[in-house]
């Protein structure tokens, strides 16, 4: 927010703010460094998902990367659908008419699946989760959180209590 920063000021700032760059690099590392993950041999999974107003049972599915997943969608009360985020996968089932389709879980992460056929008032919130492999995003987010707390402690290491009226 300072408008005129002299060169010497700039150097000073870099000197004082080196920690900022360290944090930035650490943050980027946390986001982008590939984490080692145990690669289980892909298997075929046959899953049955029951859709009722307004939930999928089971609501959370965990599979490994590369698994071939055959999904049976069973509508329990009214017509429901299942549309999986991130994958081009959609199913619609009437009660009494189970629909089956298969896909290969190539992408890792957590993907929401939603009901794709309006099934009542809470239809927009009918959600399930497919977790492919470990939820690295969550782990990275936790690390970022710890980094953020550390950064907060670090950022105020010098001017404490009474000194910080300076920039007000």
């Amino acid at each position: 927010m300072k408008f005129q920063v002299a060169d010497s000021d700039l150097i000073n700032r870099i000197k004082n703010d080196w920690w900022f760059f360290v944090l930035l690099i650490l943050g980027l590392l946390i986001i982008f460094v590939p984490l080692p993950q145990a690669q289980a041999a892909p298997i075929d999974r046959h899953l049955r998902i029951e859709a009722s107003m307004y939930q999928f049972t089971p609501g959370v599915i965990k599979v490994n990367k590369g698994d071939k997943i055959t999904l049976d969608l069973v509508a329990m009360d009214v017509v429901h659908g299942l549309s999986l985020d991130g994958y081009d996968f959609e199913l619609t089932a009437d009660p009494g008419q189970t629909k089956t389709a298969a896909f290969i879980a190539e992408k890792t992460g957590v993907f929401r699946f939603r009901c794709s056929v309006a099934c009542g008032n809470l239809h927009p919130f009918m959600i399930g989760k497919l977790q492919v492999g470990p939820n690295l995003m969550f782990i990275r987010a936790m690390l970022l959180g710890i980094l953020a707390m550390g950064a907060a402690f670090w950022s105020l290491r010098k001017p404490f209590s009474n000194l910080k009226e300076v920039n007000n």
Binding site: A75, D77, V78, V79, D94, P95, G96
Partner: peptide, 8 residues
């Protein structure tokens, strides 16, 4: 024609 509950 589409099932809409037990009393459909």
């Amino acid at each position: 024609t589409r099932w809409c509950g037990p009393n459909h």
